[in-house]
Design a protein around this nucleic acid. Structure first.
Length: 823
DNA sequence: GTATCCCGCCATCTC
DNA sequence: GAGATGGCGGGATAC
C-alpha cells in the first residue's frame, strides 16, 4: 500500500486560501445563465446579509468591541481579518454585472466547512486561559464568519466530540481549546481498544483486498455483516467529567450522531496501524452509508482543520483511493481518569449503569457463552427468582427510584461473595488434594471430586430466603471451616435458630475492622450495636475457649457435646463417626459445611474474612489484631440477636487463603443501594418492610470492609454509602467493569442487570444466597473457571490466589471488553 | 464519472 | 408557537 499525501488537500489552510478555483469563471457564467442574480427578481439564494454596515453609528457594543480590540492584539487581528472580509462585501451587489456578482460570491471552496473551521479556530487560542471567560456565542460567530448557524453547528459538534468546546446554554458554548484534546484522544483510544476497533479495521481492510463479485452495495453489506458481531455502532458518546452535555435538545437527540460519528472516526485512526483510514472502512457500520459519508466528509474537514488528520491517497491494486492519515499527537491509552459513555439521555446523565450498559447494549447476550456448568446455576437462580416473584409476599416496588437498583452495589458485592465462596472451595480442594498426596491414598480409588462432592441439597424453601440487608440484622461470623472464619449474613430468626438448637454456639459481634455500628469490644455489652456476629462453639471442650480449631467442625463439636443430637439426621451422624484421617476429616468438613449450611442456615451469605493472615499451618493474626481480640475475648458481648451470650473462647488461628480484594473505591449511585428494595420475605413482616429500606450501616461497612471495597478504617453511614459514597476517579468505570464481571460470573442475572430496572425480587436473586444450587454447582463452576470460560480468572488464582484479579479480570471474549482493569 | 460537500428542508426538542 | 438544534439528502461543484 502506497500512501501519498495529497498535496492540494483542499482544506489545508495555506492552500485553500491562496488557490482560486480554475473553473470559477466558466462556472459562474453558466450559473448566471441559469440563475440570474437577485437583481433580476428571480428566486434564488438570498444574498448574505452584510454583517455590519460601514455606516453604522458608534454604539455601546461597538465601543466595547473597540476597547476589547485595543486590549487584545489577538482580537485586534481578528477584527482586521474581519474588516478585510467585510471590504469584499462592501461593493453593492446591485451595481455588479453578472460576472462581477459571481466573482464577488465566495467559491465553493471558500465556503467549505474546513475553511470555515479554520476561520473559526483562528478566533480562539489553542490553549485558552481557563480562568477567563471563553464563551462562544453562536450568533456572533455565525454573523462574523458570515455563515449560517447551521454550519456552525457542524463545527461545534465535531469540536464537542473532542471536548474542545462544551455547550453552556442555548446559543452559548465554552471554548476549551486543546486543553482536553490529548486526554480525550487517550480515552477514545481506550474505548476503541476495548471494542476491538483495530481488529475490525483489519478485518475490513483484509476483505477489501479480496475479490468481491458483488456490487458496491452488496459488497458493503457483506462487509458490514462480517463486522457486525463486533460492530461498534453501539458505542455512544464518550464524555469527560464536567463536560457533559447540558440541556436542550443536545441531550435529547437520539445518538448525537455527528458527535458520535466523529469520535468513532477518530477512534479508527487511533487504533489503526498505520494510522490511515479510508472512508470505506469508516462508513461500513452504517447502512445509510451514502448519507453518512457526507457526514464523514464534514467531520474530516473539521479534523483536517484541527490538523489531526490529513488527506492522503492510498495506491492499491484497484487504484488510487482517498484516505485520511492521522497527523495528530501520538496517543497512548494507559491513562485513565473518569470518563463516561452516554447514550440514552432520557435515562439521565447520572445513570452510569445505563450509560455503561449502552456501551455494549446487546453484545453481552450475544457474546457471552455460558459454560454448561453454569447452566445449573442459572436454572437454580432462575427458579428461585420465579419463586420469589410469584410469592404472595413478593416485594412491592415502593417508588420508581427503588426499582433502579444499581448493579454496582449489591449485585457486585455478591459477585464477589460468590468469588470468595468459590475461592474457599478451591482452597479447600487444594489443601485436600495436598493431604491426599502426602498422606493417604484414595481408599476407594475414586477421584477426589467424586468422593468429596457434596450431596445435593434441596433448595431452601421460599420462606427460607431471607433478606440480605436489614437494619437490625448483623452478619454472623461462623467458623464453618476449621481455619477459615466466615461471616454469614443471617436473618435474626436464623441466628436464633442456631443458638436455640445448639446452645454450645455463641453468637457475638465479630471483632473485625472497625465496623460501623459495632463499638469497641471493651465497651459495655449493652452498647454494642448491631454488628457482625461471630458464632462459635463456646463449649466444645469445657475450657471456655472454643477456638475455631477446636471446633473445626460444627457437627463434630455438636457431637462431642452430645447436644441436640436429636435434631441431627442419622445419616450425618454416621458420616461423622467415620472421621479418622486428615483426608476424611477434610472431606467431612466440606460435607459438614454443607450440612451446617443446610441444617442451620438454609439461606445466608458467606463472606470469608480476609484480614487473617496465614503462617504455615498455623495462621496467626497480627499482634495488633491478636491484642484486640484478646481484649475482646475477655468481655462478654450482647447481641441484639443472641441476647447476651458469654463469650470466652479464643479466636483461633486461622488458615485463610491469601486472597484479598484490592481496595477499590466504589461509587454507589444515589438511586442504588439506598433504594434497594429488600425482599420482604415471609420472615419479615410488613412492618419491618419499611425499616429495611435502608441497609444497616454495620452490614454495609462490614461487607465493604471485608470485601476490601473500602479501607478498614473507613466508616460510612448508610446514608453516606447510599447517597454519595466514596467518589473517586474511575468509579463509574469500576461499576461498569464489575457489572460486566457480574454478568459473566452470573450469566443468569445478565438479563436483569441489563434491564433498566431490577425488581426487588430480582435483586434478591441477583445476590448469591448460600443455597444448595450454588453449593452444588460451585465445584462445576470452579472447574469451568479453570478450564475454558475464564482462563484469566483462573490464572490469577494460580498465580496468587488473589481474588481481586479473579473478580476483576474476567474477560469478555465475545465482545471485547478488556481483561485488564485498573481500579 | 466519481469524489466531495454545500445547502437548506424539516423533524425534534425546549422554553 | 417560536426558536434552537441537528439529521438528512438533493444536487452542485471539484477533480
Amino acid at each position: 500500500m502506497n500512501i501519498e499525501d495529497k498535496e492540494n488537500w483542499s482544506f489545508e489552510p495555506h492552500e485553500s486560501t491562496l488557490k482560486t478555483p480554475l473553473k470559477q469563471a466558466a462556472t459562474s457564467s453558466w450559473l448566471l445563465a441559469e440563475k440570474p442574480p437577485p437583481a433580476s427578481g428571480h428566486l434564488t439564494t438570498p444574498p448574505k446579509p452584510n454583517e455590519i454596515s460601514p455606516g453604522d453609528p458608534w454604539t455601546p457594543t461597538a465601543n466595547l468591541k473597540m476597547l476589547i480590540s485595543a486590549a487584545s492584539p489577538e482580537i485586534r487581528n481578528r477584527e482586521q481579518e474581519k474588516r478585510l472580509s467585510d471590504s469584499r462585501n462592501e461593493i453593492p451587489e446591485d451595481h455588479l454585472s453578472g460576472d462581477e456578482y459571481e466573482k464577488s460570491q465566495p467559491s465553493r471552496k471558500e465556503k467549505s466547512l474546513g475553511l470555515l473551521c479554520h476561520k473559526f479556530l483562528a478566533r480562539y487560542p489553542s490553549y485558552p486561559d481557563i480562568s477567563k471567560n471563553n464563551e462562544i456565542c453562536l450568533d456572533e460567530v455565525a454573523e462574523e464568519l458570515n455563515v449560517e448557524r447551521r454550519r456552525i453547528y457542524d463545527i461545534m459538534n465535531v469540536l464537542e466530540s473532542l471536548h474542545m468546546v462544551s455547550r453552556l446554554a442555548k446559543n452559548r458554548y465554552s471554548w476549551h481549546g486543546r486543553h482536553n484534546l490529548k486526554k480525550t484522544l487517550q480515552i477514545l483510544k481506550k474505548v476503541a481498544e476495548e471494542n476491538n476497533y483495530s481488529q475490525q479495521v483489519e478485518l475490513i481492510k483484509r476483505r477489501q483486498y479480496e475479490e468481491e463479485p458483488e456490487g458496491d452495495d452488496q459488497k458493503i453489506q457483506l462487509m458490514a455483516k462480517h463486522v457486525r458481531p463486533n460492530d461498534h455502532t453501539d458505542i455512544c458518546f464518550v464524555e469527560l467529567p464536567g463536560m457533559e452535555f447540558r440541556a436542550a435538545s443536545v441531550n435529547s437527540r437520539k445518538d448525537k450522531s455527528l458527535r458520535v460519528m466523529s469520535q468513532k472516526f477518530v477512534m479508527l485512526f487511533l487504533v489503526s496501524t498505520p494510522q490511515v483510514v479510508n472512508l470505506e472502512v469508516a462508513y461500513l457500520d452504517k447502512s445509510k452509508f451514502k448519507t453518512k459519508i457526507r457526514r464523514l466528509y464534514d467531520i474530516a474537514n473539521v479534523l483536517s482543520s484541527l490538523e489531526l488528520i490529513r488527506k492522503v491517497h492510498v495506491t492499491e491494486e484497484k487504484g488510487r483511493k482517498p484516505a485520511f492519515k492521522w497527523t495528530g499527537p501520538d496517543v497512548f491509552s494507559e491513562i485513565l481518569g473518569r470518563w463516561t459513555v452516554t447514550s440514552d439521555p432520557h435515562v439521565g446523565k447520572s445513570s452510569k449503569e445505563h450509560c455503561s450498559k449502552n456501551l455494549f447494549p446487546t453484545r453481552s447476550k450475544q457474546g457471552f457463552i455460558r459454560h454448561p456448568s453454569l447452566m445449573k446455576l442459572a436454572k437454580g437462580a432462575q427458579s428461585n427468582q420465579r419463586k420469589i416473584r410469584s410469592a404472595p409476599s413478593s416485594p412491592v416496588k415502593k417508588n420508581a427510584s427503588t426499582s433502579q437498583f444499581c448493579c454496582f452495589g449489591g449485585a457486585i458485592l455478591d459477585a464477589r461473595i460468590l468469588m470468595l465462596w468459590i475461592s474457599f472451595l478451591r482452597d479447600f480442594k487444594k489443601r485436600k488434594m495436598k493431604l491426599e498426596h502426602s498422606t493417604l491414598p484414595s481408599p476407594l480409588g475414586l477421584p477426589p471430586k467424586t468422593r468429596l462432592k457434596p450431596k445435593p441439597f434441596l433448595l431452601p424453601s421460599q420462606t427460607e430466603i431471607l433478606p440480605l440487608i436489614h437494619n437490625s440484622v448483623p452478619p454472623a461470623m461462623l467458623p464453618l471451616h476449621p481455619n477459615v472464619p466466615y461471616a454469614l449474613y443471617l436473618h435474626p430468626s436464623q441466628t436464633q435458630l442456631v443458638t436455640a438448637y445448639n446452645p454450645s454456639f455463641t453468637v457475638r459481634p465479630v471483632h473485625c475492622a472497625n465496623v460501623a455500628g459495632s463499638k469497641s469490644p471493651t465497651e459495655p455489652s449493652s452498647q454494642v450495636a448491631p454488628g457482625p456476629i461471630f458464632i462459635e462453639d463456646s463449649g466444645s471442650n469445657g475450657e471456655g475457649s472454643a477456638s475455631c480449631a477446636k471446633g473445626q467442625d460444627l457437627w463434630l463439636a455438636k457431637e462431642q457435646e452430645g447436644t441436640k443430637d436429636d435434631v441431627v439426621p442419622e445419616r450425618r451422624l454416621k458420616r461423622r463417626r467415620m472421621e479418622g484421617s486428615p483426608m476424611k476429616k477434610y472431606a467431612s468438613e466440606e460435607a459438614a459445611l454443607h450440612d451446617v449450611l443446610l441444617t442451620w442456615f438454609p439461606s445466608g451469605y458467606l463472606i470469608p474474612l480476609p484480614h487473617c493472615t496465614k503462617l504455615g499451618n498455623e495462621t496467626i493474626f497480627s499482634n495488633k489484631e491478636k491484642a484486640e481480640m484478646c481484649a475482646a475475648e475477655q468481655k462478654s458481648y450482647s447481641s441484639p440477636i443472641a441476647g447476651g451470650i458469654q463469650v470466652t473462647s479464643e479466636f483461633t488461628a486461622v488458615n485463610f487463603p491469601a486472597f484479598h480484594i484490592a481496595p477499590v473505591n466504589l461509587k454507589l449511585p444515589a438511586s442504588s443501594v439506598a433504594t434497594v428494595p429488600v425482599v420482604n420475605g415471609t420472615a419479615v413482616t410488613s412492618d419491618q418492610a419499611d425499616s429495611i429500606q435502608a441497609p444497616s450501616a454495620s452490614v454495609m461497612n462490614f461487607t465493604l470492609q471485608h470485601l476490601g471495597l473500602i479501607p478498614a478504617n473507613l466508616q460510612m453511614s448508610a446514608n453516606q454509602v447510599l447517597r454519595s459514597g466514596p467518589v473517586c476517579q474511575g468509579a463509574e468505570h469500576v461499576g461498569f467493569k464489575q457489572e460486566k464481571a457480574m454478568q459473566n460470573v452470573l450469566p443468569p442475572y445478565s438479563d436483569e442487570l441489563n434491564g433498566k430496572s431490577v425488581s426487588a425480587a430480582s435483586l434478591q436473586q441477583a445476590t448469591v444466597p448460600v443455597t444448595s444450587s450454588i453449593l452444588d454447582n460451585c465445584h462445576d463452576f470452579q472447574a469451568s473457571c479453570e478450564s475454558a470460560v475464564v482462563p484469566e480468572f483462573c490464572s490469577s488464582f494460580h498465580e496468587s490466589d488473589r481474588i481481586s484479579q479473579a473478580t476483576l479480570a474476567i474477560p469478555q471474549r465475545e465482545h471485547g471488553v478488556s481483561t485488564e482493569d485498573k481500579f
